[in-house]
């Protein structure tokens, strides 16, 4: 049996320590997704905890026909989307964290500005396209996994991803940042 499923079964059988093992295994990935969705470290920290608590509370509803990982991503992303709906994104913090240390060499400053541009470009994408990029490019989920997490077909994921990449390239080009060869 799959290691995650074993942990889930241990938890259902009453072994609460299995929760800790599952959280330890996935906390970094879930935090990273939520940070990329919200652009805010504090929100990402809170939402990571919320997502895990919800996942464990609802774990009996997890049928095992998807992997625990994609199921967890699904819950995290829903938590992230709800949060975004409630509070429009705060881009300031991210910008500050990226631009904050102006003491560096000119090349580092340019590098940081570039990253801010990429992040802004990402934020300008429609939600589904942004999610497709976050899950595929950052998280390295396969098309099939991304489709499961987003609740759409693989074809739709490919289309979202394709449009997103195209648009991001355009945005970066407009701002004078050609992709380095």
């Amino acid at each position: 049996m799959d290691e995650d499923l074993r942990l889930v079964e241990r938890y259902i059988a009453g072994d609460a320590d299995a929760v800790e093992d599952l959280v330890m295994k996935y906390q970094r990935q879930i935090y990273a997704v939520l940070y990329r969705m919200t652009g805010n470290t504090e929100d990402a920290r809170d939402l990571t905890q919320t997502a895990f608590v919800r996942a464990m509370e609802g774990v009996r509803g997890f049928r095992g026909d998807s992997s625990f990982k994609t199921w967890l991503y699904q819950i995290a992303i829903n938590a992230g989307l709800n949060h975004l709906k409630q509070n429009r994104r705060q881009e300031v913090e991210l910008e500050e964290s990226l631009m904050g240390h102006h003491s560096g060499a000119l090349s580092t400053i340019i590098e940081k500005e570039r990253r801010v541009s990429i992040k802004k470009g990402l934020d300008e994408l429609p939600e589904r396209q942004r999610l497709a990029v976050i899950l595929r490019a950052y998280e390295g989920l396969s098309c099939a996994e991304t489709a499961q997490v987003m609740g759409c077909t693989e074809g739709a994921v490919k289309a979202h991803y394709h449009h997103a990449v195209k648009k991001l390239r355009e945005i970066l080009k407009e701002r004078g940042y050609a992709i380095r060869p």
Binding site: V19, Q27, Y31, E57
Partner: peptide
């Protein structure tokens, strides 16, 4: 694109989260 790193919330967060989740649940 992937060069935008998520800032690390620090060891304390990673070490305490599993227990916090367990207790909350």
């Amino acid at each position: 694109i992937v060069s935008i790193e998520a800032p690390d919330p620090g060891d304390l967060f990673w070490k305490t989260l599993p227990r916090k989740v367990k207790l909350t649940v």
